[in-house]
Design a protein around this nucleic acid. Structure first.
Lengths: 225, 225
DNA sequence: ACAAAAGTGTTTTTTTTACACCCATGA
DNA sequence: TCATGGGTGTAAAAAAAACACTTTTGT
């Protein structure tokens, strides 16, 4: 009879004003000398908690954001994934059974950075947005792998649900296009992009326009609820 | 600290001579009166076994097939998923801790039915191929959901790896086309299908032909290894 | 000679791409 | 009046869909 721990790790992505895609990482001390390590926000799931609720709770405790749309993308269950020296050191400090196997379910979330107020949980001494190219190759456990797989999933499965969480309730088509460009990492043609959007019944034009911009104000659009 | 059981459930699909897609189900007694229930083949993962190996082991014990290509598609972790009366009855007979939470990772496999020799494992009293439309709406646990999600995944992610396991080493283009038609559940145009295949560098024409058929013998093709 | 499946190209339609100028606003 | 991003259509290219007859074999 195998008993093990179940955790959830969240690949939380957001945007900064500098138009860069950033991932939310937490910083953890891994020994008494205050050596630290970065990790994806994640924690053990509660006894009677389902996965999605657990993910939301964990994410909420780290980001103070509620009602985040989270999507499961893969489960990581290698028996060795918590066995590395650097990770054992941390586990010994914070877990009663550091040798217990932990499998983790990866969830992905896209959030509006402006609405995020850092709020580190117990074992996180810090929580920061890190530009993708700046992410350490030495994240806790197999978190580099999880991040990579999450990003791949995002690019392959990009959907309105995920996208809509990164935009204000009302947005311009240029904002939407920039999002797609950054997430897909390719430049899109403005006219073709708009042609496609106009066929999409989920994105609807409001009768409002941008205010106080030093150029022709753009129409605002919104996602159909 | 949450400790729980981890299982793997396999959505194993195959084809019969009647060109129908069938799923491999096992039959389990759920009480002493020999009332039974059907379920996807699945079992608990070993203490130090990784997920993919576990899936292969479990599948092998049920199908005696080795080196099956298995692909993870989703993880099911509702705390209620093993709490139904019908399932508790079975769990009490076979598990030491029937109330323990079980999360399960769904894997999908496509196999050649001809090569499958039924080989029920300990708690399976039978293992049979069941046509999709004939599958009970009352499978064990949340297996109807798992099956449904697996089939959806298959249709969305249909790839050479999965397909190639359903075909003999050498096959005709008509066989290949029939497979796609059944898996995608749509009719394909022969000429367009062949046009696409010819662009696909993974599928190569051998210099062999069918033997002893009462019509023009087809060329045999093979997957590049 | 007939039944059965194999094999093969062209046209039409649809989808995707490429591309450039005028507009409304605030400074 | 200038700088800034907003907004718009058309033509060319590529991809996908529609479609029917001849061939080879065993019986």
């Amino acid at each position: 009879m195998l008993l093990l721990n179940l955790s959830i790790d969240c690949v939380v992505l957001g945007f900064d004003k500098d138009q860069k895609i950033k991932v939310l990482l937490i910083k953890k001390f891994i020994n008494e000398r205050n050596d630290f390590q970065f990790a994806l926000p994640g924690d053990l799931v509660g006894v009677n908690e389902d996965l999605l609720s657990g993910g939301k709770r964990i994410l909420e405790s780290l980001t103070s954001l509620e009602n985040i749309y989270l999507k499961q993308f893969y489960t990581f269950g290698s028996p060795d994934r918590t066995k590395h020296k650097k990770d054992q050191s941390w586990l010994k400090m914070y877990r009663q059974q550091p040798d217990e196997r932990v499998i983790t379910v990866g969830y992905i979330a896209l959030v509006k950075m402006e609405e995020y107020i850092p709020h580190p949980s117990s074992f996180a001494v810090d929580a920061e947005w890190v530009e993708l190219s700046m992410v350490s190759k030495d994240l806790a456990f197999d978190h580099n792998l999880i991040l990579e797989k999450g990003l791949k999933y995002l690019r392959e499965q990009l959907d309105h649900q995920l996208i809509s969480n990164l935009l204000p309730a009302k947005f311009t088509l240029s904002q939407l296009q920039r999002l797609y460009e950054i997430l897909l990492d390719e430049k899109l043609d403005k006219r073709n992009f708009r042609k496609n959007i106009s066929k999409d019944s989920l994105i609807i034009k409001t009768d409002e326009k941008q205010q106080g911009v030093a150029h022709k104000p753009a129409h605002l659009y919104t996602y159909k609820s």
